[in-house]
Design a protein around this nucleic acid. Structure first.
Length: 583
DNA sequence: GCCGTTTTCGGCCCGACTGTTTTCAGTCG
């Protein structure tokens, strides 16, 4: 089982414990363990095989370690199966519905016999939910609306889709005369690869017109609620948007608070408590100056909160870039002053994966080159597909030779940028390359990737990829896990073994910046860096406009703590060529 | 259930909104 699967089982047990009325701190312990697993850069099974004591991991104690060991050994968890005998496991699905939490899920089950979302829908349609004490007509309607939403799509939104939906709304709200500041917070600001909803934060002279502008927005499907300082709507796309309006004095504190992550905020508050302070969304306050006194921007106990740096400084920390706020060691680094200088788009000197009309791209070589030069790049690699991908017009040796002649001609017309001869060479099922070695030797940049046989057993898949990265001329492994967000899971293989081989062989790994891939992902990149594997951030562009997708790759690289020094294509041309010539 | 130069017990982050309540529990972020 991989870390994500382990985390899912512990999360389910935590939810089920909560429904069964367990001690809330015990429930939280499960949530904390899940968070640790999700943030782990190395597979837990690997750590265990290396003899690591799992209880040295944060939030993992004796009990969690035993659960994890059982899961790794047997793939099952007795505690979950036992609890499932007294509380239906399907109840955790009910908690995914808005306004249904553990208490309501339990009562729906005990008093109405509801155990699934479908049964809940039937009960609500029959009017049985409204009759329940503590519920009413409105609760019943909310449940039905929630079920409809759930059935439509109970997933998250890819970050690029979120951008398309959010940016016009942000522009509209910023144009309101009353608005002084408006920022998108939450996981969107941390640039997670997907977002569940959108948190907007505003400072305004008068909150009412801002709230009204949101609820009246043409893309709003329905208004979930609107009060003095906050409002929630669901867009026609299904994306939920929450808006909070805060006083100017609280803007920084609120931005920290609503940017999260929750785990990062918890750490900040604990630091505050240790220093006799209190942090909430309105500011940093002297704690217990007058117990029970309001802690808002007008309180005499208010100390800081106008901007984020002020809030961090109040607890002895440097400002932390939003992408790092995941409780992965950033607090300690901010305290020591050792936060990394994160890579930016301006550090990139060349794009090392793109396609042209020679395979499945939509633009010619020269067009792609001109677009790269316009971005200020010093080099680009043209990586059209190899012949195994016949449907893309993949090239065999003869076609590749013809392409080289055109490349030479285009290069002769454009001395301003270096056009590298390359190819996205398929890794065949046995790990051999889909191009003769004599031709491989003629390439400036040798990129390999898997595009077929995703279903191979893990051992075979691993052996196949290992053979490819151990090929003496291979320089980069592209989109190593093959995942497509929301469409295809990563194929089953031992990434750790592949990364170690890359480290030994001096092969780089790609961070494919296409928002559908983002492969490797942030935690994998952290592991690559630990092992000393260089990263290449490429767009996989199939048209000039796709070159702009680079920003999505940069964001994930930042989430992985990468600096310019960790990324090969930040090097100027001469140093880049020198670096890859060693291979 | 986890954690600890305030260790092996007694804590564990905080506030707004909603709906159904006559004073607040539950949910959510």
């Amino acid at each position: 089982m991989d870390n994500a699967a382990l985390a899912a089982v512990l999360a389910e047990l935590g939810d089920l414990l909560e429904i069964s009325g367990a001690n809330p701190f015990r429930v939280r312990a499960y949530r904390n363990a899940v968070h640790t697993l999700e943030g782990l850069a190395t597979q837990l099974g690997q750590l265990r095989a290396e003899g690591r004591d799992l209880t040295t991991l944060p939030g993992i104690g004796k009990e969690m370690a035993a659960h994890l060991a059982e899961l790794l050994d047997t793939g099952r968890l007795t505690a979950l199966e036992e609890l499932g005998k007294s509380v239906p496991r399907s109840l955790v699905e009910l908690m995914r519905l808005p306004s249904v939490g553990p208490k309501k899920a339990k009562r729906l089950w005990e008093e109405l016999g509801v155990t699934t979302v479908d049964e809940l829908a039937a009960a609500a349609e029959a009017g049985r939910v409204a009759a329940l004490e503590g519920f009413g007509e409105k609760s019943q309607r909310k449940v039905l609306a929630g079920v409809a939403e759930y059935r439509l799509h109970h997933g998250r939104f890819r970050i690029d889709l979120a951008d398309r939906l959010v940016l016009p709304l942000v522009e509209l709200l910023r144009s309101q005369p009353a608005v002084q500041h408006l920022e998108v917070a939450g996981s969107y600001r941390r640039r997670r690869e997907t977002v569940g909803d959108i948190d907007l934060l505003a400072v305004a002279r008068d909150s009412a017109p801002v709230i009204a502008a949101l609820t009246a927005y043409s893309e709003v499907e329905r208004v979930l609620g609107a009060g003095e300082t906050r409002a929630s709507v669901v867009l026609k796309s299904g994306l939920q948007v929450d808006l909070r309006v805060v006083p100017e004095k609280s803007y920084g504190a609120a931005l920290v608070y609503f940017t999260g992550s929750k785990e990062h905020n918890v750490k900040l508050r604990i630091r505050a408590v240790e220093r006799g302070l209190k942090i909430n969304e309105y500011g940093v306050f002297q704690a217990d100056a007058a117990p029970g006194r309001d802690t808002d921007a007008d309180s005499p106990d208010w100390l800081a909160g106008r901007d984020e740096a002020e809030v961090y400084a109040a607890v002895g920390l440097a400002w932390v870039p939003p992408e790092l706020r995941e409780d992965r060691g950033e607090i300690a680094a901010a305290e020591r002053g050792t936060l990394p200088r994160l890579i930016t788009a301006a550090d990139i000197r060349g794009d090392l994966q793109m396609h042209s009309t020679w395979s499945d791209g939509r633009a010619g070589i020269e067009e792609m080159l001109v677009a790269c030069a316009a971005r200020g790049y010093q080099y680009l690699a043209l990586t059209d597909h190899s012949k195994a991908l016949a449907m893309t017009g993949g090239m065999d040796a003869a076609k590749l030779r013809r392409q080289w002649r055109e490349i030479d001609a285009v290069q002769a017309r454009h001395p301003e940028i270096r056009l590298l001869k390359s190819m996205e060479i398929d890794i065949l099922a046995d790990g051999s390359l889909d191009l003769e070695d004599a031709m491989v030797a003629g390439l400036d940049w040798v990129l390999v990737s898997v595009h077929s046989r995703f279903e191979l057993p893990a051992a075979e898949q691993t052996a196949r990829i290992l053979r490819a990265v151990r090929h003496p001329r291979v320089q980069v492994l592209a989109h190593p896990t093959g995942r497509l967000l929301g469409k295809r899971k990563p194929f089953d293989f031992d990434l750790e073994a592949v990364l170690r081989a890359c480290a030994e062989e001096g092969v780089a790994v790609e961070l494919n910046a296409h928002p559908e891939r983002l492969d490797l992902k942030d935690t994998h990149l952290m592991r690559a860096r630990e092992l000393g594997v260089k990263v290449v951030i490429s767009t996989d562009a199939h048209a000039p406009a796709d070159l702009g997708l680079l920003s999505y790759g940069i964001e994930q690289a930042r989430r992985a703590w990468l600096t310019a020094g960790d990324v090969l294509n930040t090097l100027p041309l001469d140093r880049f060529l020198a670096a890859i010539a060693k291979r």
